[in-house]
Design a protein around this nucleic acid. Sequence first.
DNA 1: AGAGAAGTTGACCGGGTAGTCAACTTGGCG
DNA 2: CGCCAAGTTGACTACCCGGTCAACTTCTCT
Lengths: 222, 222
Amino acid sequence: MRADAQRNATKLRAAAAELFGERGLQVSLKEIARRAGVSHGTLYNLFGTREALIDEVVADLAAASLDEAAQAALACADPWEGFAGYVYRVCELQAVDPALGDVLNRRFPDASRLMSVCDRTFAAAAAIIDRAQRAGALRTDFTGEDLVLFLASHAPLARATATSQAWRRSVAFMLDGLRATAAHPLPAEPLPSDHMNHVLAGLTTTPRVEYGPPTNPNSTHN
Amino acid sequence: MRADAQRNATKLRAAAAELFGERGLQVSLKEIARRAGVSHGTLYNLFGTREALIDEVVADLAAASLDEAAQAALACADPWEGFAGYVYRVCELQAVDPALGDVLNRRFPDASRLMSVCDRTFAAAAAIIDRAQRAGALRTDFTGEDLVLFLASHAPLARATATSQAWRRSVAFMLDGLRATAAHPLPAEPLPSDHMNHVLAGLTTTPRVEYGPPTNPNSTHN
DNA sequence: AGAGAAGTTGACCGGGTAGTCAACTTGGCG
DNA sequence: CGCCAAGTTGACTACCCGGTCAACTTCTCT
């Protein structure tokens, strides 16, 4: 890669990081190019697709935040405090950084590094849940899928109430309902994990006729 | 109004009701006109703005559903069951009818009848909450604003999991946390009610630079 | 320095949205 | 039955979006 291309890629990554952090992962690619001060053609030339750009820009940051949160949760002496703190921490990340909110809400199947971050996070969450359940603190009918759905549906609220922190109340209510001592029988089965992707996709996008990419016949990329 | 105009208005109302119910209140006006089999110019001529159309088409239906739910809640002998049933019922309405979900999420300040439905619903919810709190069943630190935020942020989940009804679990967890017996101290103050509109606006729309209508210099309407 | 490869650019395509308005059609009254 | 106001139409403006590519510039190697 030529030196000027390298420079442009850096500028684009920086602009993307800024805009993703300000407005989420759905910002227009042309706007990213505009902010970076290069033509949008260059963006397409260097990254090919939005997902490739997201993967390069967001994956590491997301991994760092989420892994650290999981780490802290498991390191916590009290399994319930670990679990509760984890939920608060993740919601806080979503409130502060729209990009991170989108990582857990939207699906980016072609962003392989990001997807592995998601998988790792899901596994960590399962471990945190399991630990709290074994300690008898967390109700045993709560599943990892329930947590993912809660976090995903809660992200927009966290973002919208970031300054007032009103989202903390909502999390607190939910957590009070998740203690083993508060448990009452549940009215429905957990979401089958193979439905998760479909549901998450439907959470953020308004489904048109079915669900498919908007009209992307072929791409040169790279 | 001439007979043919009357007929077209009826067709447009019907088409709007269909599409609002299928895909929510943000469907393109041209698409509504297309389904009604008239030119979009006619839609603008007869209704002027999207909000006017929404107000005519959705207000009554929303009022009927929401009032009936509130009615049933207050008629319930057990105040807690009334409250819990109300939450389930409203979420069910949101799951089944995207238009109704949008009524509680989005803001339509120019749809006066709809706004009055919202006001009435909020008042009814406050009464339902109050009754359950006086009975000692619902925790006293739960406010009407908390309920509105919960319902608003929960609507997309309800819609996305309408078939599996997985949203019922999420509601159940929350309700278990709302019982007076489950209450633990809250980590944040309730959202000031004058912030509600701003927060609700931010919940569904991705804020650009500030918050304002997208570029609507002037309109002839009616 | 020169030439060829690598990279950049912005006009352009096809699609979408909201909204306007001159030219046309039609309902319905006298 | 004829006329005219009322109503309808679709081309038009002005914006977005993602994506492509021929023509141009610039880097870098010999």
